[in-house]
Design a protein around this nucleic acid. Structure first.
Lengths: 178, 178
DNA sequence: AGCACCATGTAAGTGGTTACATGATTCC
DNA sequence: GGAATCATGTAACCACTTACATGGTGCT
């Protein structure tokens, strides 16, 4: 009974191919733009995986159009690919391997001076503030379905409390004597 | 100008050694118990890193006590190790490489049936509810400083909104016709 | 002409997990 | 006696990042 523990990247790629045929470059862009606030991938993963998906029959290459100026290589998910993807969707998500570096630094904050910690909190606050804006943008422009909207709402909620928490923590630290 | 991009595990280990001398086993336990909600490590990382820290002069072995029943191998951070750790604390945290699998599954939820998505939401809700309890426990029992308390508060805030969001999303989905 | 971005890929290196191996101690 | 937990480590494997290589297109 081995674990298998497949690469999550595979499913992120399959997910975007399930939406519509895409090139590797477009997949990367979609990941950055649409799920960037909770997911990231590199080309070094995407391109080899695309090849592997074709080998396994989970996706297939679409021959480039002649009148297509760019030399894009499109990929289309197969029925087998859809099955595989849907099987994965049913599996429980492994909550694990969460690593939040800014929390780690703050947790050990007593080892640094106050200004260092305040800087971390400020940059954390700023990144969450711009995230709020980005998500608002996304919510307006995109024709998202129920599930996408729910995920966006999650991002909006958590980033809002993050900003609030950062403000409170900054205030509390600032008042501190040391 | 190379990136260096050192292993974050090294600093998690150094951080707990900066608190007090510990064995590899105790470090793992401290990580699980105290920062488990935003960090995780495996023995396969910790023990080799402990050895590497000694090689680099960032930590040193403490010879086991004779009257110490268990054969624990303790490690103590050196001044050099403290310097290295404090330098790292000053560096900006790289917000990146965040990967939330449950959000990924929900984002692609339209490819699965409603019950699958509800299951993910329910288990997400439950894990956040037990997190709230765990954090309450931690906050009471431990003699934590300002920074630890702040991090705990962050965990409490985000897990509360997560539960709230999960409830709302579950309700909205349940009402949906399909 | 030059810059930003589009576009695809490979190679090297590393960070990290999982599985395996071994044995002591404590509690029921 | 047996299970849970304490305790330390190694080996194999793989997921992922970074750096490199190459060239096209569009804009100013």
């Amino acid at each position: 009974m081995t674990k298998k523990r497949n690469s999550r990247t595979v499913y992120a790629v399959l997910g975007f191919l399930a939406d519509k045929p895409r090139s590797g470059y477009e997949i990367k862009k979609a990941i950055d733009d649409k799920i960037g606030f909770f997911w990231s991938e590199s080309y070094g993963q995407i391109y080899p995986i695309l090849k592997k998906l074709v080998d396994k029959g989970l996706a297939e290459k679409i021959p480039a159009n002649a009148d297509d100026g760019r030399k894009k290589q499109f990929y289309k998910i197969t029925d087998l690919g859809k099955d595989e993807f849907q099987e994965w969707l049913k599996l429980p998500a492994d909550y694990n391997s969460i690593r939040n570096e800014i929390l780690l630094k703050l947790f050990f904050g007593a080892n640094a001076d106050k200004e260092t910690n305040l800087n971390h909190l400020r940059s954390f606050k700023e990144s969450n503030q711009s995230l709020i804006n980005d998500l608002k943008q996304l919510d307006n422009q995109e024709n998202t379905g129920t599930y996408q909207q729910a995920v966006l709402a999650y991002g909006a909620n958590t980033s809002k409390v993050s900003v609030k928490w950062a403000n409170e923590t900054i205030n509390r630290l600032t008042k501190l004597s040391s």
